[in-house]
Amino acid sequence: MTESTGGIDMDEDSSGTVKKFAFINRKAPYGTVYALESLEVVLISAAFDQDVSLMFIDDGVYQIKKGQGTKGIGMKNFSPTYRALEGYDIEKLYVEKESLEERGLTEADLLVDVEVLSRADMAALMEEQDVILSF
């Protein structure tokens, strides 16, 4: 999977260097497994002390919508786990403004503190990353 990870350098020389990692989340929760998989990788990545950002665009913004309750569909509600990210020192959460608007959502609908960015700023932020993980 070198393509999607942008080529993580695991050489000994690179140990100790901090890289900018971005997780780009584009899928709604529950309908597919992408959102949950991403969250698990994010939690594991926290152990490597890298500069991690989470970006929520397109349907990905639905992952952090308030008020999820999954008893009826018999799946685990993993939305509370986004609130644990702060404790893992993952505090850079970015949400695309246009994606919220296209879905009738505002920042107040989200269950964690985020920074809302325009599509153009989001694109620029992607360019700054060393490694991008796509979900």
């Binding site: 709604a28 929760p29 919508k65 008020g67 999820q68 309750g69 009826g72 569909i73 799946m75």
Partner: peptide
């Protein structure tokens, strides 16, 4: 489908006139 709306936290924002079913 109501359980799917609820799972996604969208139960309070449904367009009027939509019939919700279990």
């Amino acid at each position: 489908l109501w359980p799917d709306l609820e799972a996604r936290g969208m139960q309070d924002t449904v367009i009027d006139g939509v019939k919700q079913v279990d």
